[in-house]
């Protein structure tokens, strides 16, 4: 077990280094016991805890499941108005993608479940989240795009709490959240393990008058997670133009 753990650690380091495709294949081989029915999927925590490992594709094609009018506070409404007036400031155009945007995008992610940690590997922008299950708290630290996540099992549900988030936004058209945001995600297998339900609650006392959230569903898929090379470049017309697939 120790040995397996170490090798998985290496795999994750490689992902961070950008060699995502090879690493995915390695991690998949190591983390799972091959293709299995839901009865055969044994979690690292034992038979009493579900195994969420696998690749999950959002069922909703657009972000329609997210409300257009969340319960903004006055400050939140002002932040949204600023967003709407400055589309050029959308950081995703510069390949800077906050967690909220990832959670609403129609792109898949992979879950790797280990005894004391669940790792979420997102296709979108190669982002990685490590959810620590060992009882630690959030550090007193600076904010980041993905924030800091800790988790616990409540029955069949993995509860993930995230703090230390850099101010971000939840949909392409805005819906900002502040540095004070606490995000809670409750992940539960449904439909015999073929679907994953994610209940997401946003607790942001700065931009919202009350907590609110959405429920979204993912389906289990055999599709590979694709590389997501994100490119920022300006078009140079005529003779100076570049061509091809942007690689």
């Amino acid at each position: 077990m120790r040995k397996l753990h170490d090798i998985e650690g290496e795999a994750i380091m490689e992902i961070v280094a950008g060699r995502i495709v090879a690493s995915m294949a390695l991690a998949a081989c190591l983390a799972f016991t091959g293709p299995a029915t839901s009865q055969e999927r044994v979690s690292p925590q034992g038979a009493n805890v579900p195994n969420l490992s696998g690749t999950w594709m959002p069922e909703a094609w657009s972000t329609d499941e997210w409300p257009l009018e969340p319960p903004y506070s006055e400050a939140g409404r002002a932040a949204q108005a600023h967003w709407a007036a400055h589309p050029e400031q959308d950081p995703s155009y510069a390949c800077i993608v906050p967690l909220g945007r990832i959670l609403s995008a129609p792109l898949p992610f992979e879950i790797i479940q280990q005894p004391d940690r669940v790792t979420l590997l997102y296709e979108y922008d190669h982002q990685v989240r490590r959810v620590y299950l060992d009882g630690r708290g959030h550090p007193d630290s600076y904010p980041t795009l993905m924030g800091h996540s800790i988790g616990r099992w409540e029955g069949d549900t993995l509860v993930i709490e995230t703090a230390n988030l850099e101010p971000g936004y939840l949909r392409p058209q805005g819906m900002p959240y502040s540095r004070e945001t606490r995000l809670t995600e409750r992940l539960t297998l449904v439909d015999g393990g073929e679907r994953l339900r994610a209940e997401i609650v946003i607790d942001d006392p700065v931009y919202y008058a009350k907590t609110w959230g959405v429920t979204k569903y993912y389906r289990r898929t055999d599709e590979e997670i694709k590389d997501y090379e994100c490119i920022v470049r300006e078009h140079v017309p005529a003779d100076g133009g570049s061509q091809g697939e942007g690689s």
């Binding site: 967003w83 709407a84 589309p87 392409p172 058209q173 078009h235 061509q243 091809g244 697939e245 942007g246």
Partner: peptide
């Protein structure tokens, strides 16, 4: 509250024919 709509006008839909010069996939 829509940044994409801020950039492109849903009420101004046009159809244009032309020859491709570059594809940025």
């Amino acid at each position: 509250h829509h940044s994409f709509v801020r950039e492109y006008d849903p009420q101004n839909v046009v159809t244009v024919e032309g020859t491709v010069t570059e594809v940025w996939y």
